[in-house]
Structure formats: structure tokens, C-alpha cells
Design a protein around this nucleic acid. Sequence first.
DNA 1: TTTGACGTTATTGTCAGATGATATGATGAA
DNA 2: TTCATCATATCATCTGACAATAACGTCAAA
Lengths: 230, 230
Amino acid sequence: MMNSTINKQTLSEIVVSKIKKHIIDNDLKAGDRLPTEQEMADSFGVSRLSVREATTTLSYLGIIDSAPRRGLTVGKFDLDRLKEFLGFHFALNDYPREKLLYTRVVIEVGILGYSSKAIIADKGVYYKLDEICNEIDKYDSLDSYIHWDIEFHSMLVKVAGIEPLVMFNDLLQTFFRKFRLEISSIGKYRDKGHNVHREILESLRCGNVDQAENLLREHLGCYKEKIQNS
Amino acid sequence: MMNSTINKQTLSEIVVSKIKKHIIDNDLKAGDRLPTEQEMADSFGVSRLSVREATTTLSYLGIIDSAPRRGLTVGKFDLDRLKEFLGFHFALNDYPREKLLYTRVVIEVGILGYSSKAIIADKGVYYKLDEICNEIDKYDSLDSYIHWDIEFHSMLVKVAGIEPLVMFNDLLQTFFRKFRLEISSIGKYRDKGHNVHREILESLRCGNVDQAENLLREHLGCYKEKIQNS
DNA sequence: TTTGACGTTATTGTCAGATGATATGATGAA
DNA sequence: TTCATCATATCATCTGACAATAACGTCAAA
């Protein structure tokens, strides 16, 4: 009955475009209201279902929010949403483990300067990391070691306060958890009776970023050989 | 009748997850068949409509392809699609630019060591970057400067060969493209009659990674002040 | 045997209409 | 005023149906 143009797209895709256009044309910002689904259905000349498929898609992408009775509003950008897609991307294209390790090194070493500043500026930040080090020292079981090890590394990135990197690093950790379990020999670092994590933390507290970087680089380097034979 | 867990998500979101899970669990690759919408509706215990909202969404992202009579197949998950939406998000309400800049600094500075190795190991890599520097030297117009500037920075990451970072950096560039246009004053670095990019490249060729890091950090730092007043 | 036309059919694409769930806003009482 | 209560608009989901289309099998002709 409609659809003058011979469009290869599905109706919902067309509606998605129209909604995006509507947002841009009216210069809508996060939180602004959109017409109701029924109104759009009427004005676009399609059924509400087609509109619904479009709003569902946009909602999934975080471009709009929807709630009963409140209606549709323009959404705000959400890193978690992006994280989900990237996670899926990671799950499909398996990147070589070596590359994933290098990625971790770049990020974790790269943020140490920011982490150090945060630790020095706020005692609470230091205590949080210190507490994690204490947990690592306990060394109840491999499981708990791995848990707190991840916690430490994640926290290091988190306190740096650069959210996109936190998000990306979280994704990486997901994949490292899997094979951290395969690589069980952590004795090397625990046997010495000291805790690399604490050394790193202390270096950061003293503003000795270079030393922390070297320690962390070496610490992560221990995975490298293990990756080779797997 | 269903929905045992008190999930805050919508049904279609749950179905999206289930389909993604199905793809991962069965290790499906692009082109592989998925169950029909009706089959999924039955097996998930929801109506076909809910499945449809999910497949529409996934189809829009290119995660699945669908065609009448052929059914649903796994598509090639194209990050370009994702970039489009990131760009759209950024057009609406931009993410804190400071954080984006820091992210860039961490990644671009962090990979320089790997880039240097690649440059030294393979003359071809050097020539590629050198050629880009030549283009920057020409300085025809702001547009071309921006284009080759982006090219240079992307290439630096690319030659380092850490694919996950290349991918992530690619996404970041989506955010930066728009705002590089707003910041037009590049004279500061060009007027001196030298090209920072070339300096960085030469440092890397000589294996002087520290110097390259400092140069790049300073180079990117010039954005910082511009971010403040915008 | 190969090839090409043709009808069948499975599967997505779209519609209409209805009910449930829920947050907002209005109403009224303390 | 402030709080509780209720009505209602709007999304969330379902049922059931029909249209459109492309793959598949069939059969006839070369």
C-alpha cells in the first residue's frame, strides 16, 4: 500500500533510518521524548509492529530508551552496551593469545602513571588495593588466588579512571580467566615469599612509576612462555 | 508461563543473548544455518514475535542474515556497523573528550615499542610511514592534513601488529574524526618547519623508543588544552 | 543425460487486534 | 503541605493470519 521506492531494505530498517533522521533533524539530546510507537506507525504509514522492530533495535543499541507509560526517549551512550558487542566480537574471532597478552601489557602498563596519581591523591584508593594484596597473601587456594589476582589487575586499571580502557580491559580479563585456570603454576611468584602485586603498589605509592612498569611488565611476561606451549 | 528468573531485561534481549550463546556454543561460522524463527520460539518458550524482535536486531548488526525461504544464517559481524552507531551516539551527546584522549595516549604510546621493532625489522614498514610523512609535509589543505594525520597514527598502531588494539583504536578514531575537524589550529606544529610525525618515525627507526614516546605524548598533549575550552 | 520451465512449499516479512504490566500524573485524604 | 491511592497512557507480549519470496523437486524437451 505504501513503499513507493523499490527498497531492498526491510520495513524496519527503513523505520530505523527515519527515527535516526527524526532525532537529528529535531536536534534531540539524551532524555528527549520521541513520538509514541503508535504515532510513528501512523505517520510513517506502517504497522506498529514494524515500528516496534525498529525501536527494539535502537533500544538494544542504546540509542533510545523505552519504558511503559513513559514512552520513548533518546538514550545516552553506554559503554556496557559497547562491551557486549565487542565481547561477542572477541568470542567469534579468536585472537592469538600472544596478542591478547600484549594488549594487556600495553593497557595495564600504560595506565600506571594515572593509577599512581590516583593512589597518591586519595588514601582510600591505596587502601582498596592494599586490601586486595592482603587477600592475595592469604593464598587459600588456586581459585582464590586467581580471583584476587584478577581483582588486583582490574582495580589498577579502574582507579586510573579512564573508562574506555576499563571496559576494554574487563573484556580481556574475561578471556584470561579461562586460560589462567589452565596455567596453574603460580608458585614461581609466591614461593619467593613476597608478592609482586604489593611491590607494584608500593612503587606506585612512591610515585616511582618506571619501577612499577618494569615490575608489571615482568609479572605479565611470565604468561608468555606458558602461552607458547598451549 | 515462562520467565523463571525475575529478569529486568526484555524478552527480546534475552532471546538475543540466547541466540548469541547458541552461535558461540555451537561454534557457528558465517554462513551456517540457524534454527527457524518458529523453532526458536518453541524451544525458548516465547512467541515468534519476540524471537523476531531479536533476529531483527541481530540482523541489523550483521550478526545474522535472514531471507525468506532460506532462513537465518550467521553473518559476518562487521565492526563497521558498530562504528556507524558509535558515530551516531557521538553526534548526540559526546563522551568526555578528556577520557578519549587519555585512551589514545595509552594505546598509541604503549605500542611504540612494538612499532619500532617492526620498523627496524622490515624496511617496507618504514617506507610506508615515510610516505605518509611526505604527504603531511605537502600541507595542501586542512582536510588533507587531517586525513594523513589520522593515517599516520592509525598506521603506527597497525604496524605494531597487535590486532585487538588495532580494532579498538579503530573504534576510537570514530569518536575523534568529528572533533579533529573542530580543532583547526594545526599551525603550531607545522609552522616550525618541521614535522613531529617524521621526528617520531626517525626515533623509532633508531630504536629510540623513549624519545618517540615523549614526542608522541607531547604531540597528543596539544589536544588537551583545546579540549578544555570546547 | 542435461537443461530449462514450472508449480510446490517452507520460511521470513508484515499486518490487525487484544491483553498484561507499569510508571506517571491526578485525585483525595490526613 | 504531604502522603497514599487510583486511573490511564504506553510499552511488552501474545495469538492468529496472510503475503512475498526463493529454494526445491518434478517433469518435459533437447
